[in-house]
Design a protein around this nucleic acid. Structure first.
Lengths: 259, 259
DNA sequence: ATGTAAATATGATCCAGATCAACAGTTGTC
DNA sequence: GACAACTGTTGATCTGGATCATATTTACAT
């Protein structure tokens, strides 16, 4: 199963703190063993010695560039994308308005999962930071499968879409948070948890998305996001250097949300 | 299939308009042929001549009283409830905060569907207006089914949870609506659409939930909801008499959301 | 009917956050 | 390496909606 080996490409990045330069490495590549698509493949029973089933339905480690569109609203649904490195943003035009950011896919997460059970894509998903994805041909998968495998696959997908529903429900609960500070804090903690669940440090990560995208996602103005981050930084709850975030006092952040 | 017959219990209700009394009837009972659980039963292949499979897993037309709890957060997931008449409210304690209203179930909709794919209930659902529900034993259903029926059932549930996910996604997009007016307008139009899709008039319905619940649901203060409804009423976009809503200019409401 | 509790409504005040504007810093390109 | 274009940052102003206080209406039980 060589194609599933880890391919850790650390993202090196220079940032200026006060006057002196310092180098920080925020690894943002998921080891294949930890990735959700690997779990998917395992559950689907595709982890056979010869990988023949898998070869037919998976396009592995496909490089993607910034702003590349994985799928567009209205496309017929066919592929799932395991984000191997880099990250994606998904948006939709809901309620007849301008496109709104609906969510982000971090390394280790499956883009396209929100389309399961539907014939058309209802989101547009594009690459935020260049990286690589594994593409799984969902339609061909279903055709390839033997009858007795189908039950297992569908059971699994029920679970997978439940995971997505849980995140959706979390996002839905943002509506109930009235203050900008609470929303930003919840956002950071959610990201931290997702990074952690894919094997990355929870307290130190790079924001893949722009301030504008965060603002749209949280239903705030970009300036408010910036000021809130700065405020949390000044109060030493986080350290925020443009896209680099360090969570200094996670408990305090949690308390913010609760109050 | 006698138990699936319609049982229309019109909710008669007095309301005072200006100085004179007038009687209005807002029927809020779904005809069984139109109800989602009937569709469910049909798709699940339970519509056999003798109904034996169905009898084993469905408790029909069970009366429920106001404030009765159908299921509670943390309960193990077992039943789906088709709301036959009356309505339900579901809430959850997310992000460690006080309970927040997550949604409503109108006649014809399936309470508990958000638990599909999970072992525990993550919402608490209680009856808003007394009525009756059909209770489907989800666990027993799975045990009862023959192997070859299981595929069809799971395919169906994939679709059913996708419907729920679509509503969740709609709710999630409320976060992007900045003004109270837009949120209230979106809420009313969403309700109207759901009533219509279950065979009720879209432009005239009774709000099953309190102003407080609406406010919580939309992330607004109760006073704001009241004032916004009154404002829309004054501008003749709706007619709002406590719980009785009439949509006078749906297009204008849609425009509000878009702007 | 009638009393009581709950739900709904309205008024007054105040502040968080939107908006507008100007500027700095960063990234990518030729 | 210099320019252009995007992204992020800061300041000043103003308003929508939260909050608190209080009144009125409706729902329900007796």
């Amino acid at each position: 199963m060589a194609a599933w080996n880890a391919c850790n490409i650390p993202i090196t990045q220079k940032l200026r703190a006060s006057n002196k330069r310092m180098e920080m490495k925020f690894s943002a590549t998921v080891a294949c063993r930890d990735c959700a698509l690997y779990q998917t493949a395992k559950v689907l029973g595709l982890e056979t010695p010869d990988c023949s089933s898998l070869n037919r339905v998976v396009l592995r480690d496909h490089p993607v560039n910034k702003n590349e569109v994985l799928y567009r609203e209205g496309d017929s649904f066919r592929y799932l994308y395991l984000v191997h490195s880099g990250s994606c943003i998904s948006s939709a035009t809901i309620l007849g308005r301008k496109s709104q950011v609906m969510g982000f896919y971090l390394p280790g997460e499956i883009a396209g999962i929100e389309n399961i059970g539907q014939s058309l894509c209802n989101h547009t998903t594009r690459v935020l930071e260049k990286g690589s994805v594994c593409q799984l041909d969902f339609l061909m998968l279903e055709e390839t499968l033997k009858q007795d495998e189908l039950i297992r696959v569908q059971s699994y997908l029920l679970g997978a879409s439940a995971i997505h529903a849980r995140q959706l429900q979390w996002e839905r609960s943002l509506t109930g948070l009235q203050s900008a500070e609470q929303r930003v804090a919840a956002f950071l903690l959610n990201l931290a948890g997702r990074f952690q669940s894919h094997g990355f440090p929870a307290d130190r990560f790079r924001l893949p998305m722009s301030r504008e995208a965060i603002a749209d996602y949280l239903g705030l103005a970009m300036e408010t996001v910036i000021r809130t981050l700065k405020n949390l930084h000044n109060r030493k709850l986080i350290s925020s250097q443009t896209k680099n975030i360090e969570i200094l006092d996670g408990d305090a952040l949690s308390d913010l949300i609760r109050s």
